[in-house]
């Protein structure tokens, strides 16, 4: 039955080459921890992606309860964490995942750096990887405000104040992030939009580029 449906679609759209292109490659011995345990350092990139998936999924569930306005933001997080079944697990995964994704990405960056894997022809992939790093930091900064407790509020206030001290551009950055005279209702909705729509969209586009380049260029050879 499934095979019949697949063949019916494949005859019309020729989809086999698309996924065979992803599936049909082999993993060389020098990056396979099953053969050389020290090759576990090559797992960090995959783990970063895995935790990113956890972040996307848990974040999608969090938005079912979260309300991005200054009256209800804290209350909705409080309700989600203390009243909703498994809410504490979902929010916990998103909270700890946010730190772990930074840790894993940091380790992955160090692995690529110290194995010299960013050298020609893979320079562009390194640059895209660093852009992913910056987007992740942006996601961390915008997400930190959303629970709207004192820790979130004052960290954001200080962060924006530091950004505002940049010469020439500081004022514009402050207006862009804050949206008003103080960290308030405008800031919260802005950070929510950035955290949930803009930055994830950029992240997915960059991840697509990152993975496309890995497939195109292959894994760097053994040292």
């Amino acid at each position: 039955m499934m095979k019949g449906v697949y063949n019916w679609i494949d005859e019309r759209l020729d989809i086999t080459p698309m996924w065979r292109d992803v599936a049909d490659h082999e993993v060389p011995e020098h990056v396979n921890p099953a053969h050389h345990f020290s090759a576990f350092v090559y797992c960090f990139g995959g783990l970063t992606f895995f935790i990113t998936l956890i972040q996307i999924l848990s974040g999608m569930f969090l938005t079912m309860y979260y309300v991005p306005d200054i009256i209800n933001a804290y209350k909705s997080v409080d309700y989600l964490q203390h009243k909703v079944a498994f809410g504490v697990i979902v929010r916990g995964m998103h909270h700890w995942g946010a730190s772990l994704v930074i840790v894993m990405m940091f380790l992955h960056t160090l692995r690529v750096f110290f194995t010299g894997s960013y050298k020609a022809p893979r320079e562009m992939n390194w640059v895209v990887g660093m852009l992913i790093f910056f987007v992740m930091l942006g996601l961390g900064f915008t997400g930190y405000l959303l629970p709207w407790d004192n820790k979130a509020y004052f960290a954001t206030q200080v962060g924006i104040k530091i950004a505002a001290s940049v010469p020439y551009l500081g004022g514009y950055i402050q207006t862009f992030l804050q949206g008003g005279d103080i960290v308030g209702a405008q800031t919260l909705t802005r950070f929510f939009a950035l955290h949930v729509f803009f930055l994830p969209a950029v992240l997915l586009a960059l991840l697509g580029g990152h993975f496309y380049m890995i497939r195109k260029q292959g894994i760097a050879g053994p040292l």
């Binding site: 200054i70 804290y74 209350k75 997080v77 409080d78 964490q81 504490v88 929010r91 916990g92 998103h94 909270h95 700890w96 629970p147 709207w148 407790d149 004192n150 820790k151 979130a152 509020y153």
Partner: peptide, 8 residues
């Protein structure tokens, strides 16, 4: 569990 302080 994820920390949550007092409202901002």
């Amino acid at each position: 569990p994820a920390p949550l302080g007092y409202p901002a």
